[in-house]
């Protein structure tokens, strides 16, 4: 077996536990059904491209993006724990390189992101099936989103986890950053309903791009703007990945 696959195996073993599953899968599902239907009374149909989406459909698709972002927490937590419990040094003194380590983390969160996105898509399907327009690009777009999102947010989580020394710090900071991304994005409500300055800030947020791309895939509304968003997301992910890799290779023992 390739070293990266062995590390992915180990990463998944140590990350997937009941607490994680509740946070990553059960909670988003409950949220889609409870919040989705509770807020339908408050929020009208949401225009998206040439479509009108019901709010639950809008929310469920946004939740997929949110979930991909959240699953990258796993990578930050793995790096953080590995440093704190001596496993980073141990792995680096074994038959692995730092590149193996970094790529295995990215692969782990891409897998976790893809699986949980798939689960939410499958369970959320009844909520948005009326507006769904499967096309040959639906699946590729979701895969693109999972992988690019995993690299982008995973790099952010890695950067934070390599910069910190205090044990309290990591969870607080990463959750604050991700909560900020979540609420200042179009994941939970549409930019069109928000006041102008806020709507602008939405588009300084990579999560907005991520959910736009996912929605475009699910609801078949690919525009030039979405393609531009894909390019921006990919470029941003590459830059952050390079920074994260640099920081990780500089970590000394």
């Amino acid at each position: 077996m390739h070293p990266i696959i062995r590390l992915v195996n180990r990463n998944i073993t140590i990350s997937v536990n009941p607490g994680f599953l509740i946070w990553q899968v059960i909670f988003p599902l409950i949220y889609i059904f409870v919040a989705g239907f509770a807020y339908t009374a408050l929020i009208d149909n949401v225009p998206f491209g040439n479509k009108d989406l019901t709010y639950p459909a809008f929310l469920a698709s946004g939740m997929i993006g949110f979930n991909i972002m959240n699953s990258t927490l796993v990578s930050g937590i793995i790096i953080w724990n590995d440093r704190r419990h001596g496993m980073f040094e141990q792995i680096m003194s074994g038959p692995f390189t730092r590149v193996h380590y970094i790529l295995s983390n990215i692969a782990t969160i891409a897998i976790i992101g893809l699986v949980s996105a798939g689960l939410i898509a499958a369970v959320g399907y009844p909520v948005f099936f009326e507006s769904v327009e499967f096309s040959p690009v639906t699946i590729p777009l979701i895969i693109f989103s999972s992988i690019t999102g995993a690299i982008l947010f995973g790099s952010i989580a890695s950067i934070i986890s390599t910069r910190l020394r205090s044990s309290e710090g990591f969870n607080v900071i990463i959750n604050t950053v991700f909560l900020f991304f979540a609420f200042v994005s179009t994941a939970f409500y549409p930019a069109s309903g928000a006041p102008q300055p806020l709507a602008t800030i939405f588009y300084l947020n990579p999560l907005t791009y991520l959910v736009d791309i996912i929605r475009a895939g699910i609801f078949g509304t690919i525009t030039e703007f979405v393609i531009l968003e894909m390019v921006i997301l990919a470029v941003l992910a590459s830059i952050l990945f390079i920074i994260a890799t640099r920081l990780l290779t500089k970590l000394d023992f």
Partner: peptide, 11 residues
């Protein structure tokens, strides 16, 4: 290699 520093998978 068994380093001086402890190393373990807590969970």
């Amino acid at each position: 290699v068994v380093l001086q520093q402890p190393s373990y998978e807590p969970t």
